[in-house]
Amino acid sequence: MKVYCPDLECDSCVKVLTKTLVNANFRDFKFEKDGVILDQEGDPNHAVKIIQEKGYRAALSPFERKSFSERLRDFKENKKKYEVEYKLLKFTLITFVLLSMFEVIAYYAFFKSVPEFLSKYSWWLLYSALSVVGIAAAVVHVRSYRAEVTHMVGMMIGMTVGMQTGLLVGVILGATNGFFIGALVGMLVAVILGIVNGKCCGIMGVLEGMMAGVMGGTMGGMIGAMMVVDNILIFMPFFMVINLIILLGLSYMLFEEVVEHNVKMQKVPIEFFTFFSYCLIALTLLIIIMVYGPKSGIAGVI
């Protein structure tokens, strides 16, 4: 009988489990890459229990991935299992509504006197709020689980956060302020977020986050600056939807690769006030740069 144990990473793991099994009177067993094969006499359920007690994942069947439809059904039926995700979805929706209200209040309080404010900025205010909550939700989701991640997962986290942040911030500021501010701010913000989130797996994630930040920030600024004289308002809904789907995909991947079946994983509590505060500060800075920041290139003349 095989006990599947996907957390076997090194000789130390094998030594720890060998000792555990020997102490529990298992005699003949053999380790494989993804588990341990027990002799006929040992009780496999007991083996699963003692291996789990040591902090490793263990089961009598392989740890298979759920298909997308199975995951969706599981998500609807197991609210307790996905409590972090439900909480974050709630926070995201409430924060988006509050940020939209904040923008309306800010318009009447500060920006009403700015010439052509609504025609110049109204769509970009909406996209800013969407981008801020989208990026914040993805980043907070990554940080709401404390677990060891593989280099591949860490690099994906760093790259996705860096690239999407750069593209979203870059395109907005590129359209309102020109290529210079779009690329500069987009790149700096994206590189910082790429480093902060990619460092969960060490230098590889950090570099991936930095490179994606440079690429996303400059490319986002370029798209915004170049397309502002084209049909950018038709382009933007598609651009936003695809980018938000990618951020959702990051959360999906995180759950699949880091959270599911991982007994060593720890949940980190998230607070609405903290989430909302970060979003509010980010949005406020974005709006200030958008409205009062330097304008260059095409954005300076239209």
Partner: peptide
């Protein structure tokens, strides 16, 4: 020492 298993091994 590079992982939690190393810690468990030496502790035990």
């Amino acid at each position: 020492m590079h992982c939690k298993s190393c810690v468990m091994l030496i502790t035990d």
